[in-house]
Design a binder for these strands. Structure first.
Length: 550
RNA sequence: GGCCUAUUAGUCAAGAGGUUAAGACAUCUCCCUCUCACGGAGAAGACAAGGGUUCAAUUCCCUUAUAGGCUACCA
């Protein structure tokens, strides 16, 4: 019996040929330098930080070269798929302004001429390619049961042989077509396996875009290509899809490096051009026990990009951080080009690090802090409001009610050459400015952080004298401070810091202590932004009410 | 076990056969100063180890070590 007959029995419903698909999905009419690449997640509903990083890089490169960036859903593992997983992914990415030229746009919708972009909708295509392989004696059905595979493995481990279904271990490789057809007709389940012609003793060389030349042994494993449920595994889908979708660059994590020889063998069997590979270092984290490991979706909340939305880190700041990880010269470039944005930066594969980097959340916060410090108060307000609407509705109501007042608070020491850097994310705003709102001041538990002067009578005396005699709302800053000093002197403290520092024993205290008292009465905290600005924003009634609480 | 990748300070990293081995975050000190922050000036801190090749190696080669990944009808 011929392979053709076998192929017919295995895939009787296939009506098209590879050539048909080649015509349906012609080469893209693009500049030779244009990069076509994609984001190809499993629909687990959320995007991993590592994926976001490679997505961002791919998106950037595609845009930069006038290429195409598309979204393909790899849902070949039914166990991992999650309800509304696609929507979750698209939603996560939208926050980062990553939009696709083509691909899935929802659970059941898509745009573009190279679809379907959801793998489970491409079964017929895979079968066509599978059938071709069988016809050409490049693949065969395998009937081995899990127990048999386990036995092979145990045997190999015992004799210290290389693990895998290959060579003489690949039992089903040696079945006759008669037997194969008979077993299939009897309804026996089977998988499709590659009939590898590789030689483990020989080398394949790949020019990886980040790592340069990498040498692997040729693949000689008869990998499963199509599972018994008729759905392909990643390796097969990758080769078929990326060829048909005319992908030029494969950006993926380095965990894929060892299977690259298999992918190359498949491309070559089909006679397809091998795409450019770019294997990115993994994003790691330090485990509790001090060892490094891959940032994990299951164990680490910060692995999900939604974590940062929840914290209220501006998505732009996350992008800045990812770019500093992705391209080592980015940080320096940004320093030199403070007026430019990340879109003006030219990404370069050569500036990518091959080693996996530790995910440094401190650095992320630092970048975010600097980014937020340079935003306009109204933009911070808009971002804050947007964040609070979802994550702190009560605060959202408050800042909506007091819009101008809130913007004024956010503007304290902001729009100047060297702005304050108080906030590293939106969720850190409320804990630092709550005392500016009477509603919050009334209900928060107050822990007055008085320092040197703690006597209640003295505090009242200082505060009342200052407010009644020395505080005038319309004073400019210099007058204001002079008045504060005058008040200090009247109370018998040192108005002049220099004099005080020279002879601290000559005084009860200094203007620093006096201003501290006023600060703590008003805010309960001993560290706040400029006291002058705070006084200016609070009304006389608010100011007077707060001393009553002492 | 086999295969692959990586290894410059606490972290991220630049770098070239000959350098005082950049820079950033974090840490510390001092200055500025009404507190904090900002800003400024400093400090401390690194080429995993051993063999080669070479006049010279942290840089090239080999070995070892360590870390990570893969070795599934997961991706």
């Amino acid at each position: 019996m011929t392979n053709k007959e076998l192929a017919e029995v295995m895939y009787p419903n296939v009506t098209k040929t590879i050539e048909d698909y080649e015509k349906m999905y012609p080469k893209r009419d693009l500049d030779p330098k244009a990069v076509v690449t994609r984001f190809a997640p499993s629909p687990t509903g959320f995007v991993h930080m590592g994926s976001l990083c490679s997505t961002f890089v791919g998106y950037k490169v595609a845009k930069q070269t006038g290429g195409v960036y598309y979204l393909r859903i790899e849902d070949t593992d039914q166990k991992r798929s999650v309800e509304n997983g696609i929507a979750g992914i698209i939603n996560d990415l939208k926050q980062f302004n990553i939009e696709f030229d083509e691909g899935a746009t929802g659970e059941d919708s898509e745009v573009g001429n190279y679809g379907p972009y959801i793998q489970t909708k491409r079964i017929e295509i895979y079968q066509t390619f599978a059938k071709w392989l069988v016809e050409h004696d490049y693949a065969y059905p395998c009937f081995c049961k899990p127990e048999e595979l386990e036995a092979i493995r145990t045997h190999q481990e015992h004799y210290k042989e290389r693990i895998g279904y290959y060579g003489r271990h690949a039992k089903c490789r040696y079945l006759s077509n008669e037997e194969r057809i008979e077993r299939i007709k009897n309804g026996e389940p089977f998988v499709l396996r590659l009939k590898s012609t590789g030689d483990f003793e020989k080398k394949v060389v790949i020019n990886d875009l980040v790592r340069g030349k990498v040498e692997y042994p040729e693949n000689d494993i008869d990998h499963v290509l199509i599972k018994s449920d008729g759905i392909p595994v990643y390796h097969f889908a990758h080769v078929v899809d990326d060829h048909l979708m005319r992908t030029t660059h494969i950006l993926r994590g380095e965990e894929w490096m060892p299977s690259t020889p298999l992918h190359i063998e498949l491309f070559q069997k089909f006679g397809f051009e091998v795409p450019n590979y770019c294997h990115l270092g993994l994003v790691m984290k330090i485990d509790e026990d001090g060892s490094r490991r891959k940032l994990s979706k299951r164990k680490d909340p910060e692995a999900a990009v939604s974590y940062y939305a929840e914290k209220g880190i501006p998505s732009e700041a996350v992008k800045l951080y990812l770019m500093t990880i992705a391209n080592s010269n980015f940080e320096g470039w940004m320093d030199q080009n403070k007026d430019k944005t990340i879109d003006d930066f030219t990404f370069d594969f050569k500036k990518m690090s091959a080693s996996g980097s530790l995910f440094d959340i401190e650095k992320l916060y630092n970048i975010s802090k600097n980014y937020m410090a340079n935003m306009k108060a109204v933009d911070v307000y808009a971002g804050l409001k947007n964040w609070a609407e979802t994550y702190d509705p009560e605060f959202w109501q408050l800042i909506t009610k007091y819009q101008d007042y809130t913007i004024a608070i956010l503007n304290i020491e902001r729009e100047q050459k060297k702005p304050r850097k108080d906030f590293d994310c939106y969720s850190s705003i409320k804990p630092t400015i709550w005392y500016m709102y009477d509603e919050l001041f009334a209900k928060m538990e107050k822990n007055y952080e008085f320092q040197k002067i703690t006597d209640k009578e003295e505090i009242r005396k200082i505060f009342n004298l200052y407010i009644e005699k020395y505080y005038h709302k319309d004073d400019d800053k210099e007058t204001w401070f002079n008045n504060l000093k005058a008040c200090t002197e009247e109370l018998g403290y040192a108005g002049d810091m220099k004099a005080y520092k020279e002879n601290p024993d000559n005084y009860k205290g200094s203007v620093a202590d006096i201003s501290q008292v006023i600060r703590v009465v008003l805010t309960t905290k001993c560290t706040t932004p400029d006291l002058y600005e705070i006084l200016k924003l609070l009304s006389d009634e608010q100011i007077k009410a707060r001393i009553e609480l002492i």
